[in-house]
C-alpha cells in the first residue's frame, strides 16, 4: 500500500458511491472550508481519478496527490 506525503485536514470517505457521488461529496465539503485546507477524497469509482482532477483545476484548487491503495484511491486536494 502506497502512502502519501500529505496529511489531510478532512477525510471524505466516498467509497462505494458511483459517479458523480465522490466529486459531489468533495465539492460540498470544500465549498464551506477555509483556504489552505487539505482534503483526502477516498473513492472506489475509477472515473473519479480523471473527473476530480479536472474539476479541481477548473475550480482553481490544487491537486496534491493521487494514491492507489489497490481497492480504492485517495485523491489529495488543497483548497485555494
Amino acid at each position: 500500500m502506497s502512502e502519501s506525503e500529505y496529511e489531510a485536514d478532512v477525510t471524505i470517505d466516498s467509497r462505494g458511491a458511483g459517479c458523480p457521488g465522490p466529486l459531489m461529496d468533495l465539492i460540498g465539503k470544500i465549498k464551506s472550508a477555509d483556504a489552505g485546507m487539505v482534503f483526502e477524497l477516498q473513492t472506489t469509482d475509477s472515473s473519479s481519478k480523471n473527473d476530480v482532477p479536472e474539476w479541481v483545476e477548473k475550480a482553481n484548487h490544487e491537486l496534491l496527490d493521487i494514491v492507489d491503495h489497490d481497492d480504492y484511491w485517495s485523491i489529495f486536494v488543497k483548497k485555494s
Binding site: G16, A17, G18, G21, M24, I27, G28, K31, D45
Partner: peptide
C-alpha cells in the same frame, strides 16, 4: 456494489450547492 443516488436526491443536493 455501486451506490447511485436517485435523481431526486441529486436535484436536492444541487439546490443546496
Amino acid at each position: 456494489d455501486i451506490q447511485v443516488p436517485l435523481f431526486t436526491e441529486s436535484f436536492g443536493r444541487a439546490k443546496e450547492l
